[in-house]
Design a protein around this nucleic acid. Structure first.
Length: 472
RNA sequence: GGGCCCGUGGCCUAGCCCGGAUUAAGGCACCGGCCUUCGGAGCCGGGAAUCGUGGGUUCAAAUCCCACCGGGCCCGCCA
């Protein structure tokens, strides 16, 4: 964040053009690029002077890559990119400037706080825009700095950790000897770590006096546990080690139950087929792009299948279908699996997809809408066919499926369940007429069955954040 | 160098933790059927898999153990 704030300042604190988070993302990448190129050039010069040509060659390869990145970024916004590069190169030492921002922010220097907050808010506003489009909102937002730094909580954590005797001073930094702590308290088996794995140390404080993310996270976690008995951190799997170090730190602070009840729900990242996504390089597909493309494709389908609907209605349905497709694609694979992104895979509208489920729901809804009279005298003993029995059985499994999904933190189980339900319902739909069924008692029993499907499917969809549609 | 995760038909995914009722299950793609009945984003059927490789444990291994190969990630005074 400090680097983005630095770049924003160097760029002259411009008003964002376009979506604010993407604007900041661009500034961040451009700044990073400018700094990296400058550093690499200096390093190469130094290596050449010292005659270490092999190492210089490696750096040159890195430099080449960054030069390509620069060209890509410049393509996107030439003026802004050039300004950032020029200003970064005029700066005697960008690292010092960035460090000054971090220091000032932790101290609470008003102009710096205002700068950083402004940049943060641009990003957050953009995230909120995107997330609200897919129906995600948060109950509360915190400024971590308020809860951990400015109120002294992080400093208190550092002091208490010092008292444990596992903190050492090294070249002006404070370092927690996680390995020794784990050995002394026999924590490796508690946290499922192999005995012979040496846990790397954790730097708590930089030599310039500022704290690191994981250190603040210790204080932040203590705060979270003041509100809850179980904390599930949904963070990338890359942060496995820091999360382990965090738990050990909590243990050292005498909070054994916190350490145990802190769960790291690690998710894998989404990859692109050709190259690595990298925020620092500005190489990524944004979620907004994915949603936009999904909704466009959905619109084409809606127009093809339901041309009679009003324009407004078509738009509304396309939005729900496109977003449903994306949400299903993401929720239906285990989070711990890396996902290689291709449009075809994510925007599949056939079986085993969000729209497939929405379609089954719409079919059930349609039958119910066409039933002029409600089911008054159902005789359930008449539901004798295989399809009907399978459907009843599948419906009965819903509660236990939801419970298991929740207990084991596996939302993909709901997706699998809903897909099975839709498949069975479609077979039933194909073989057994509902409204035209005779006698009346059978018609009513089937109508009740369809109603149950609609209710359960609707609930399953909503659990996955997919909008059920009466028509599509 | 050390550690963690993954490797299932052409492609994607489930099953693996807690070995047996699986003839290894779905989807995409491919091939062939189904438009007289509630919307075909559907239904019915078909071909296609040495479950990365090699050992081991077991009456029994996709599942447990070991080694190796291939891919990803982590080991920062980044977050």
């Amino acid at each position: 964040m400090a680097q983005a704030a630095y770049g924003f300042k160097q760029a002259g604190m411009p008003e964002p053009q376009g979506k604010p988070d993407q604007f900041i993302g661009f500034i961040y990448a451009a700044t990073n690029c400018a700094i990296s190129i400058r550093k690499l050039k200096e390093e190469i010069e130094e290596l050449n002077k010292r005659g270490e040509f092999d190492q210089a060659r490696e750096k040159i390869a890195e430099l080449d890559d960054w030069v390509r990145v620069a060209a890509e970024l410049r393509e996107k916004s030439r003026e802004l990119f050039d300004t950032i590069v020029d200003r970064v190169n005029e700066d005697p030492d960008p690292d010092v400037s960035i460090s000054a921002i971090m220091k000032g922010y932790e101290r609470g220097d008003l102009p710096i706080v205002q700068l950083v907050r402004r940049v943060c808010n641009y990003s957050i506003d953009g995230f909120k825009q995107t997330l609200s489009r897919v129906g995600i909102e948060f109950d509360s937002w915190d400024w971590e700095s308020e809860l951990t730094v400015w109120n002294g909580a992080t400093e208190e954590v550092i002091e208490k950790l010092k008292e444990t005797g596992f903190v050492e001073e090294k070249e002006g930094t404070l370092v927690l000897d996680v390995e020794r702590a784990a050995q002394v308290f026999e924590l490796k088996k508690l946290f499922n770590v192999k005995e012979d794995y040496e846990i790397p140390p954790l730097t708590l404080r930089r030599s310039d006096g500022t704290t690191l993310y994981t250190t603040r996270d210790i204080a932040y976690s203590l705060w979270k546990f003041s509100l809850a008995e179980k904390v599930i951190n949904v963070i990338s799997i890359e942060q496995r080690l820091p999360q382990l170090q965090l738990r050990i730190a909590l243990y050292l602070l005498g909070k054994k139950n916190y350490a145990i009840n802190l769960i790291h729900y690690g998710y894998e990242l989404v990859h692109l087929p050709d190259y690595r996504m990298s925020g620092r390089r500005g190489r990524y597909v944004t979620f907004d792009q994915v949603l936009g493309e999904a909704v466009r494709r959905a619109y084409r389908e809606v127009e093809k299948r339901s041309p009679h609907l009003s324009e407004e209605e078509k738009q509304r349905i396309a939005e729900a279908v496109g977003i449903g497709a994306v949400r299903y694609a993401l929720v239906s694979v285990a989070a711990s699996k890396p996902l290689t992104f291709t449009w075809d895979r994510v925007l599949d509208f056939e079986r085993n997809s969000g729209p497939f489920l929405q379609y089954a729901y719409a079919r059930a809804a349609n039958i119910l809408a066409k039933a002029e009279e409600l089911a008054q005298s159902p005789d359930y003993t008449l539901l004798e066919s295989t399809h009907e029995k399978q459907l009843i059985l599948q419906l009965s499994k819903f509660p236990e499926t939801v419970a298991e999904a929740a207990d084991s933190l596996r939302p993909e189980l709901i997706a699998e369940y809903a897909n099975d339900l839709a498949t069975i319902f479609n077979s039933f739909y194909d073989k057994h007429p509902v409204l035209a069924a005779t006698p009346r008692e059978l018609r009513d029993a089937r109508l009740k069955l369809v109603e149950a499907v609609k209710v359960v499917m609707g609930n399953a969809l909503q659990l996955m954040g997919i909008t059920p549609l009466e028509r599509m």
